[in-house]
Design a protein around this nucleic acid. Structure first.
Lengths: 355, 355
DNA sequence: TTGACGAATGAACACGTGTTCATTTTACTG
DNA sequence: CAGTAAAATGAACACGTGTTCATTCGTCAA
C-alpha cells in the first residue's frame, strides 16, 4: 500500500527490436530482417545487428511474431501419463528434435483412461500450437481439426488394420497425416522363436480394451499364429500398467489354464507378468513360461528383466514425425501422408529352452 | 505452381473476439471482459457472450493476450532427460497442476551432463515463459535471471548445505525462490535401520560428481553415520544412471573391498546395484548386502526390486512449486521464499536380516 | 556520363487482444 | 421525482513483431 508504485520496473526492461535498432544505428525493420533468413539485407549489416543483439541478449518475441506469422512454433503433445516409460522416452527424443528445428514442446495431460476432456481442446487451442501430436486414440481426428483449425494434427500408433469406419478415412485416401507401426515383422519373429522353443499355448496380455494399438497387436498375433498352425491366443485383459499385468497374470494361472508363453502389449506389462510368475507363482522365465514384450524401452535391458521384446525404433519414429510436421507446416495443402515404422525382435533372456 | 492461390483459406478462419462480438451483438471489448474474471460486466451479458463463444469454439488468442498482458501462461521446464523416471514423474504431476491453473508446460532439453547450452537460454527467452523450473543445478541463478528478465526462476533440489558461495545468496537472505529437500529425516531412518540389522561398512553411490543434490545426500549420510559411531561411508562414483551404477558396483566388489550396505543417490542407481549384486556377483539382497535408494519412483515397488528407499513426496513438492510460482506471478516484488519438503523411509525388501 | 536494373531500405499497416478514460446507463437514496 | 454514486460501456491506444510497397542506393554496361 505504501509502495511507491505497483509497477516499478526494477529489473531492466527486456530488450526489444527497437532498442537493438537504436544501438546498432539501423532501422527496426532491419533488425527484423536480420533475424529472418529469407529477407534481403546486406550481409555485413546483418552480422552487425546480430552482434548487437547478442550482447543485449535479444531474441524476437515469439508471441508478437506468432501474431503476424500465424506460426507459434509450439507443438502440442497430448498424453495421458508423461511418466509412462514409452511415452516419456518418445517425448524426450521428440523434444530434442523439435528444439533443433526451432520448435518447443507444449505438454497437455488427458485423463488416464486415455479419453480427452472436451474442454481440453479449447484450452489447448488458446495456445495456438502449430501442430498437435496425440498419444491417445480416443479422440476422432475430425473433432481435433474442428477445434484446432490452424493446427496440424498427427496421429501415432495408428494401426493399419483399424480403418474400418471408426476412423475418418475418405474413399480416396487419408484425411490426416499418420504414423503407423508395422507390427508384423517383429511379432512374426517373436512367434517363430517361441514356437521354435516349443511353446504352443501362447497368451496375449492386452492393453486398454479400446486401445487401437493393443487391438492391432492382438490381431497381428492371432493371424500369424493361425498361419503357423497354432491355436488362437488366450486373451487376458490388461491396461498397459504393471500392477494390472501382475494381477491379471495371477488370475490367468490360478483361475485359468495358464500358458506356455505370454506376449504382452507393452514392456511394462511384460515386467508385471515376469514378476508375478517369478515372485508369486514360483515359475521360471523362460524355462516354465516365456515372455515377450513390445516397445523395447530402456528398462527392458535391466538385468532383472532382460526382456526379449519387439523393438520400435524411437529415433526412426521421431524423425518421421518431425518430417511430417515440417512438411505440412511448409505447405498446409499437400495431401495427407502416412509413414510406417518397421519392428524387429530384440533377443534377450525371456524366451528360451523349456524345462 | 498452377495452384490458384498459395494462401487459399480453405478451412474456416479461426474465431476471433471480433466475430463473437458481431454475432452476440455486443462490442469487442465486451467479449474481452467476458473472458476476464475481474472485469465488470453484467452477468447475463457475460453468460450470453460465453455461450456464443462456446458454439464458435472461441478462446482468446494467448499470443495476442501475452503481448499486452506480459503473461504467456507458459512455464518453462529445463531438464536433461525427460524419460528419467523421477523427472518424468514430477513433470507429469506438475503439468496436471499447472493445467489446472491455466498454465501449460513448455519443455526444453539440456545436454545430458546437466550443463546448459548458453544459447538455450536465449532460445527459451523467445517463448517468454512466465516462470522457469530448472531440473539442473549447473546454471547460476543470476545467469538465468539475466537472460530471462521477465521470467520467475525457481530452483529445485537445492541442498541446504550448499549455500557456501557457489550459489548467489545475499547476506540478508535469498535472491530467488527455492524448493529444498530435507534429506535428513529419511536418511536417518535408513541408517538406523541398516545399522539395526548389523551393517557397518556402508557405501554411498553418488550421482553426477558436480550435482549438488548428490553432494547434499552424501554429506547428510556421512554426518549421520558419524553421529552413530559408524566409519565414514565408502564413496564410489555414479551418475544417476543404471548402467554406471551396475559397473561401479562390480568395481566396488571386485577391485575394492565391497560393503555391508549401499546407499544410492537415486532409485535407478539402486536398481543397477541390485542387479549387479544378484546377477553378476551372486550376492543376495538384503542377506549379503543391503540396498537403499532415494526418490521412491513408481518402479521401486516392482517386485524384482521391491526397494527400500527414501521417499520424496512428489505431490507435496509440486504443490509447493505451484504455490511459489503463483505467488511470485501475482506479485513479482515479494521477497524470495524457500520451501522445504520432508523425506521419510519407505520400507520394502532390500534392507533386512543378514546372513 | 547516362541509363537501367536489381538490391537494399524505411514508412505504414496488420495481427488479436487487454486496458485506460471519458461517457452513458443503472440502481439506490432521500 | 430528483439527485447521486456505482456500474457498465465503447473509442482509442498499446503490445512487439512481420510484411507490403513505394522509394532510394549501388552496380555495371553502353
Amino acid at each position: 500500500m505504501t509502495d511507491p508504485k505497483p509497477d516499478t520496473p526494477e529489473r531492466p526492461q527486456r530488450a526489444t527490436a527497437e532498442m537493438v535498432a537504436r544501438i546498432a544505428k539501423v532501422s527496426r525493420v532491419a533488425v527484423s530482417r536480420a533475424f529472418n533468413p529469407d529477407a534481403s539485407i546486406k550481409p555485413e549489416k546483418r552480422a552487425h545487428i546480430l552482434d548487437v543483439a547478442q550482447t543485449l541478449g535479444y531474441a524476437p518475441d515469439r508471441a508478437a511474431r506468432a501474431l503476424v506469422t500465424r506460426r507459434s512454433h509450439l507443438v502440442g503433445v497430448i498424453v495421458p501419463d508423461v511418466w509412462s516409460p514409452w511415452e516419456s522416452q518418445e517425448i524426450d527424443v521428440l523434444t530434442a528434435a523439435l528444439q533443433n528445428e526451432g520448435f518447443a514442446t507444449l505438454l497437455f495431460k488427458t485423463r488416464t483412461d486415455y479419453s480427452i476432456d472436451p474442454t481440453l481442446l479449447t484450452y489447448m487451442r488458446g495456445f495456438n500450437p502449430d501442430s498437435v501430436i496425440a498419444f491417445t486414440e480416443n479422440v476422432r481426428p475430425r473433432t481435433l481439426t474442428k477445434v484446432l483449425d490452424r493446427a496440424v494434427p498427427i496421429y501415432i500408433d495408428y494401426p493399419q488394420t483399424a480403418g474400418d469406419g471408426y476412423w475418418d478415412r475418405e474413399d480416396e485416401g487419408l484425411l490426416f497425416d499418420r504414423l503407423n507401426i508395422l507390427t508384423r515383422g517383429g511379432i512374426e519373429q517373436a512367434v517363430a522363436m517361441m514356437q521354435g522353443y516349443g511353446a504352443r499355448r501362447i497368451a496375449y496380455l492386452s492393453g486398454l480394451s479400446r486401445s487401437l494399438a493393443s487391438v492391432a497387436r492382438e490381431e497381428t498375433l492371432r493371424s500369424i499364429m493361425r498361419e503357423r498352425g497354432l491355436p488362437d491366443p488366450v486373451l487376458f485383459p490388461g491396461d498397459f500398467t504393471y500392477d494390472t499385468a501382475y494381477s491379471a497374470t495371477l488370475d490367468l494361472f490360478r483361475l485359468g489354464d495358464g500358458a506356455d508363453a505370454i506376449f504382452a502389449a507393452n514392456d511394462v506389462g511384460a515386467f508385471g507378468i515376469i514378476d508375478a510368475l517369478r515372485h508369486e507363482l514360483n515359475l521360471r522365465v523362460p524355462e516354465d513360461v516365456m515372455v515377450v514384450g513390445f516397445d523395447d524401452i530402456q528398462q527392458a535391458h535391466w538385468k532383472s528383466y532382460n526382456l526379449t521384446t519387439v523393438k520400435v525404433d524411437i529415433d526412426q519414429r521421431v524423425q518421421a514425425l518431425v518430417r511430417l510436421i515440417l512438411r505440412r507446416l511448409k505447405n498446409p495443402h499437400v495431401p495427407p501422408m502416412e509413414e510406417t515404422i518397421a519392428t524387429r525382435l530384440v533377443v534377450r533372456g525371456t524366451v528360451g529352452k523349456r524345462g
